[in-house]
Design a protein around this nucleic acid. Structure first.
Lengths: 338, 338
DNA sequence: CTGAAAGCGCTTACAG
DNA sequence: CTGAAAGCGCTTACAG
């Protein structure tokens, strides 16, 4: 009960109750074969001492922990949405969640971070893990589900229909009359970024518009990475009439840059993104984008992992969630076509 | 190296390298007194097997883990901001972070959740813990810092100048000519909510405006909790000319409700919040609010905990961060005063 | 119905 | 420079 004393252990309880730790363990875990009197004795000792079993010791001894893990290398609003979905899927399932974040890797993309984080949890702490946007292939002794996996990754994963979504948004721009459409890409190693770029290329090709490689800029999904890229694109004499960024964070940053440069959106420049984060609906003008429900990414990943851990998964190795084009004020016909 | 085999242990490495686990442990932890040849031997075995030490086993054996814990019962944008601050404070400090979330308590305020989560981590897993918005007093064997603690809590904590911030925003409304100002409160057990209500009362009292108890509604910081309350307040024949909500989430929900009811903001109704979350600047009209930098709450809490864990804290037991009134378009003089 | 003992994967005196 | 043994806090056969 002491504030600041060393943690109460099972032996403390056993001593106070006058029984063995074996018996205390039985009571704590609700096993059969303990007399009512002993149970009462132990319960009261637990109460008096404020005993809580040690997750660490339990998980080291047991094979199962009923705890799922999640590893991530940053906490953007994307991550927060993922977490909401995961927690809702786990709600009242008896499975808890542990999130592991390595301070030395935070915000960087040091290769293999997912592997190291995973190993920390996989030992015996967690029964299975969700890995958010891993940069490479993953190997692990426990079930793993990736959210937005690396390109060519083989682990079970959940992702959105990135190719289709990107195609739809670029076709929307083409339909408005745009021909010089730039693309700001995301982290190149992620399948999501690669598919969005493919969708962009495919839509142009279908429309018979030759792709101009100088209109493709390499960002990393981080909003700040888009600022210099947008500036460079917009400084060109033959600047594009539309910019499609691989996520909303970068698209909104592009919107900021355009305003700084005195360009009106969508008058001088159309802008589109991907994700439909809450800020996109609130921006001035509202951002045309693709809804990919990051919340559902987290929800489905947790459901899949739950089934995998319990040995009851018979679905596909990859879940692809539908996307939806959302047209708002940031896109319009180019001036030349008006 | 096997995909899906059981985890590689230190004994596996020892066997392959032809040494004892003692020696492997020494190499892994960089202890002195191992021959260069043995080190190379062990390193290569570790490499070949893809060995990573088990966090669980290590933390059970060692007194120190160099891992800090954080427990929360929900993942709102508030939590995401807190986490960013915490991670930035921990960056390159050698301290990692584990977040524990209990699925059975998610989104609910079941009494004592913080105590139970904490006990799971406090055993030996973490050297210290941050508890986000605990609902009651906390006892623990390891250092703990609370962010927005419970009323009358004694644990070290970080919070904003809630009283002063609330006073400022209500004085702003009074200055515009409002006299019927409603207040939507937050979770009653939190000091933050209580202080904001006190600030509201104090500002009215100073201005000689009698407080009308029927204008105080009890929310819980969750945006959804505000909808019925705002509806009830606005349905009254003597409806208030201004509503001050204890956080931005509830204020933005109130804005939505007002629009639904066909009321113009700020023409028919002024609305103010507290927090300054990103959405508030983007809302139409922009939300008048109090900036409390949730990011800094996380940053300072992690700094404090770091010092506490390392035995180097000599600051006060509670850190109070300044707040700042931010006036945007959602507040204006009431019609009657125009 | 109850307990002594082994062992989960590590680290740390201790002995050599 | 290296290893056998004890022990961190639990759970689980096994024996009684």
């Amino acid at each position: 009960m002491a504030l600041g004393g060393s943690p109460v252990t099972m032996s403390d309880v056993a001593r106070l109750a006058g029984v063995s730790t074996t018996t205390v363990s039985r009571v704590v875990n609700g096993r059969y074969g303990v007399s009512a009197h002993t149970i009462a004795q132990v319960r009261s000792a637990i109460e008096r001492l404020g005993y809580e079993s040690s997750l660490v010791a339990t998980s080291l001894r047991r094979s199962r922990t009923d705890v799922l893990g999640l590893v991530t290398h940053s906490f953007q609003s994307y991550t927060a949405e993922v977490l909401k979905g995961v927690m809702d899927a786990l709600s009242r399932s008896g499975l808890d969640l542990i999130i592991y974040a390595d301070s030395d890797l935070y915000g960087t993309y040091a290769e293999g971070w997912e592997q190291r984080h995973l190993a920390r949890l996989a030992g015996t702490l967690t029964d299975g893990c969700i890995v958010v946007t891993p940069s490479g292939e993953i190997r692990s002794g426990i079930p793993v589900v990736a959210i937005d996996p690396a390109k060519d990754s083989q682990v079970p994963s959940v992702t959105a229909a990135n190719f289709e979504g990107a195609t739809a948004v670029v076709e929307h721009l083409l339909g408005l009359g745009h021909r010089r459409i730039a693309f700001i890409a995301g982290r190149a190693e992620l399948a999501a970024s690669w598919s969005r770029e493919e969708g962009y290329r495919k839509a142009l090709a279908r429309a018979g518009v030759p792709a101009d490689p100088s209109l493709i800029a390499q960002g990393d999904f981080n909003p700040d990475s888009a600022a210099p890229l947008a500036r460079a694109l917009l400084a060109r004499p033959d600047r594009p009439t539309a910019i499609f960024a691989a996520n909303d964070g970068m698209a909104l940053k592009t919107l900021e840059v355009a305003k700084e440069l005195g360009l009106s959106v969508p008058g001088d420049l159309s802008i589109a993104g991907f994700d439909d984060i809450p800020e996109s609906a609130l921006a001035q003008p509202g951002l045309t984008t693709v809804d990919q429900s990051v919340y559902r990414l987290g929800l489905e990943a947790a459901r899949m992992l739950k089934a995998l851990v319990r040995g009851g998964w018979d679905g596909p190795g990859q879940i692809v969630l539908p996307t939806r084009l959302i047209v708002r004020g940031s896109t319009a016909p180019p001036r030349s076509a008006m």
